[in-house]
Structure formats: structure tokens, C-alpha cells
Amino acid sequence: KFPAVSNLFGTLERSKFMFRDSLAKVEQLVALRSDPIKALKNPLKYSSSALTALSALPLKQSLFKNTFEKTTISALPQIVNWPMDGGPFVTMPQVFTEDIDKPGVMNSNLGMYRIQLAGNDYIADKEIGLHYQIHRGIGVHQTKANAKGQPLKVSIFVGGPPSHPLAAVMPLPEGLSELTFAGALGNRRFRYFYDEEGFCISADADFVITGTVYPQENKPEGPFGDHLGYYSLTHPFPLMKVHNVYHKKDAIWSFTVVGRPPQEDTSFGALIHEITGSAIPQEISGLKEVNAVDAAGVHPLLFAIGSERYTPYLKDRKPQEILTIANHILGKNQLSLAKYLFIAAREDNEKLSTNHIQEFLQHMLERIDLKKDLHFHTNTTID
């Protein structure tokens, strides 16, 4: 019934072409949010960033209500990527929730968490599975709703402008909402309205699924063919009770294939690094650069270069500041999903780059002392 499209972000060149008119402005906006002092140091250079943010604020427009029709979960494209998947999944969703204590889109979270549409114990057309991991804003919202004994309202957007799914995966600095970022990157404000049941609807999405998540209501979700070439197994995750499924007249279903890299999310990662690459070192003192290695599946492996300045009065340097930096990295937004972190001191080689993987590994292996340079964080939840 509905056509589907994949690989919109198939190459970095294609992704940059889609945002060719806004990319530079957005990079400047993210940099300014990470280091507001820049505006004081160079007011002329950054004067346009404030205008970019203001012109990108979400816009409530009820006139779009009549552009949506209703359908059912089973009428949506039932795409199963891998033979042992537990059922069809939404792999390019934008999952929207609001803070129950501070309702409104400016205190919302927009994230990309896979959605299982059918299979396992889900009641057809009435229940779907909502999978999200730690370090996600939706978890904060559900915790607050649970504390009040109230259901969490969830809206799942699929399709729409390419800036919207990209905003859902961006590790943004505090104070910059995903909806504002989507508006800035797409050169058009994020337009929305609320339906009769009080669910937020993205006016530009192709599809919107609305529903509620009740406290302590979980069902088995998965298996799911994951980024590293193996399956995430079946585990209990929040159950979402479906209220409505909306679609535009000529809606196109967006999806991506998740599997061993390189995949479409390789381009996602490269574009994210291009936009935020300078922001993270500004937020972590002493950090020169960090690279989430795509060939390892992005999250599992990080390369980093930091400074070693704690004891300049000693002849022989030993790892001190870079250990502080390493712990900061492992506690920073989605970087904290890393399983392995290799960090080098920039003073050993000023030309070293984390993007040159072979050279970086050679640098590390030539210097590592396995008796004292390995540090373990155990008995903790990472992913």
C-alpha cells in the first residue's frame, strides 16, 4: 500500500548536498552552544547564529490536521531485515516524548529508538515494542511519568524532511533542542500540532504512530540483527499501546538496514562528526580529538588524543591527565556507550590523528605497557 525508501543518507557527499544551504550555519550554531564565550570574543562572526536559532524555533500550526488520514499498524510496510529478526521493525523512527513536569515541545526529546511492529507476544494493531537504551532522554521522561503513576505519551514520526531523522540521532549540547536543530538544518521550522487526544503530531512527517507507555508494562522485544553483525537477543522492553496511526496522502516509508558496517549509518556518523567534531573537545578540557571508529560499529571503539600537562616539571611523563580525560569521555552522552577507549598523549606526536586508524594503532602498540596501561571499568552498565 505504501512505497518505501532507504539509503537517503547513503554517502557523506549526498548527505552534505541535502543540507548544502544550511550546514555551515548549523556547525556555527552547535559550536556557539558548546562555547558561548565565542560570541563575546568575535561578535560579528557569530551574530547570525542567534538569528538562525530564533528562526528555527518550532512552529505550531493546526491547519495541517486535515492533511492526515488514518490507517493501522498492519497496513504499514512490514520490513524484516534479517532472517532471525523477531518481526518487522521501524528502523528510521523519530520518537517524540515530553517532560510530564514541564510539558511542551521545548522540553521534549526526539530520539531514534527502534520500534517492533509485530511478532512475539504483541497484540496485532494494538501493541508495539519500544526499544531504548540507557543515556536516552526518553528514559528521563518515562521515569518522571512512572513516579506519578501516569502513562507516558509517545509519538513516533516516520519520514518528513531529512533534517528530522538526523536531528533524532544528534548528540546535541545542553540547551539546544532536537526540534530547533531540525529547523535550523532543514531551513524550515519544525511544524507541529496536537491531535484530539493530546499527542504531538509532526506536520511534515509522512507517518505518525501515537500511543502510551504505562509504568512497569514490558513485553519481550527482539531478536534484532544489530550493527556488529550479530543479533541483539530477546529482552523485556517497554510496551506501547497504540492509539492512532496517521499518514499523509502520498506517504513514503523511510527505513534503513542495520548491520555490519559500512551501512547507511556510516554516513550518519560522518555527518554528525562534521557538525559536532569541534564541539566535543571544547566541552572536555585537554581533549584534542575523538573518533568513534565506524569499522567497529561506531559505539564499541573510540580513539582519542588528549594533553598530558599535569607534571611539566618532571623529566619523565606518565599517564595522568589523559586518564582524567578518558573518564570524562566515558561519561559523556553517547560516547559513554563505548566498550573500548584508546587514548594517546598529543605531546608524543603532534601530527597524530585518530582518523588515521593504522597509524594510530601503531603509535599505541609501540608505547603501551600492558602491566600498567590497561584500566578496567567492571560491574557497570555501558549499553
Score class of each variant (00 low, 15 high):
2 F>D: 01
15 S>H: 00
17 F>Q: 11
25 K>P: 01
33 R>D: 05
34 S>N: 03
37 I>S: 15
62 S>K: 14
67 T>A: 13
68 F>K: 00
69 E>T: 15
70 K>A: 04
71 T>W: 05
75 A>S: 14
77 P>A: 13
92 M>L: 15
96 F>V: 14
106 M>S: 14
109 N>A: 06
119 G>F: 06
120 N>S: 14
121 D>C: 14
121 D>L: 15
123 I>G: 09
128 I>T: 09
132 Y>W: 15
139 G>P: 01
144 K>H: 09
147 A>C: 06
148 K>G: 12
149 G>F: 10
151 P>N: 02
153 K>D: 04
160 G>S: 07
166 L>G: 01
166 L>C: 03
167 A>Y: 06
173 P>M: 08
177 S>Y: 01
178 E>F: 08
179 L>A: 11
186 G>K: 02
189 R>C: 13
189 R>W: 08
203 A>V: 02
206 D>G: 05
208 V>P: 03
210 T>R: 04
222 G>L: 09
223 P>K: 02
223 P>W: 01
231 Y>S: 11
231 Y>F: 15
234 T>G: 13
236 P>K: 13
245 V>E: 06
254 S>T: 09
274 E>H: 12
277 G>W: 00
292 A>W: 00
299 H>L: 14
305 I>A: 01
310 Y>N: 03
317 R>K: 14
321 E>S: 07
328 H>P: 00
349 N>F: 05
351 K>I: 10
373 D>T: 11
